[in-house]
Design a protein around this nucleic acid. Structure first.
Lengths: 146, 146
DNA sequence: TGTACACCTTGTAGTGGCTACAAGGTCAAC
DNA sequence: GTTGACCTTGTAGCCACTACAAGGTGTACA
């Protein structure tokens, strides 16, 4: 209570600046129960935050940057808040499942990229539209697709 | 007019089956002016289609599978419909710009994947939550992030 | 001719994770 | 007291659909 850190209070705009999460996103997280409803301190009815909230939002931002969904972020936060002596099996499960999803997305995008590249490479861009290999590929050209 | 192909008429459901595009998506494309409003033929007011529409929808489906946006699809269709003797410069431009976007997305996703993998590899999943490297990385661990 | 039933119609809401307003309220400083 | 920056809630928009509701139509068969 007297640690000189937790009793600084911040507005949502200050929290936004400090955490790197926009004020609108913070309100959105509150609506979506990713973070609890902020206390409305002081004389008025504005949301008030402290250093703990800065850390929390930074946690969320980093998780989002790694591509975790808000559902996953909620779970990770709950695990982070839970019993500190429990093994981090669930954290690992969530992270590995997410990695697997990212790998899938990469594989799909890589295949798409290869196909797109193949289609493009057949066309120099100077022939008449009627002979364009890109368009003929999309029209069901002979090269692939069945 | 008497080529035995163009005068077969199809319902939206049949077009969906033949083109591989759902009936709901076809109606959506009509609303979004990706395809023109269908004729309402026959005795009632149902949409009627022909073989030409099957080809059109297949074109759209293939372009979508390659990740082109509906805006890009509209442009590609217009070029495909335009003067057949014009050079396919614009087709090439659209396709190459799209490829560049895909490459960007791949690079970002690859970097994210590497970072996620790094974070995960530091944690065997059996240590207490309090010592979990995944959570400490998200909390602003010492390894990176600033 | 009746009727069952598959299919179609339009319109609306939801997806994810926000962003971008609009219209008005509050706070702090001067 | 007044300015002006900041905050409030609520709503709409993004993308490319999907899903559903409530009702209309087409056709096959009895």
């Amino acid at each position: 209570m007297a640690n000189g850190k937790a009793d600084t209070t911040l507005s949502i705009g200050e929290l936004a600046t400090r955490s790197g999460v926009s004020a609108e996103a913070i309100r959105y997280y509150e609506r979506e129960h990713v973070v609890p409803a902020a206390a409305r301190g002081g004389p008025g009815r504005y949301r008030r935050y402290d250093e703990y909230d800065v850390e929390r939002l930074q946690f969320i931002r980093r998780a989002r940057e790694l591509g975790f969904s808000l559902d996953e972020v909620r779970e990770l936060l709950a695990l982070n808040d839970g019993s500190p002596s429990r093994p981090c099996t669930d954290v690992n499960r969530i992270a590995r499942a997410h990695l697997a999803q990212v790998d899938e997305k990469l594989a799909r995008l890589g295949a798409l990229r290869a196909e797109l590249d193949r289609v493009i490479s057949e066309c120099a861009g100077v022939v008449p539209v009627a002979d364009c290999r890109i368009l003929s590929a999309l029209s069901g050209g002979p090269a692939h697709e069945r």
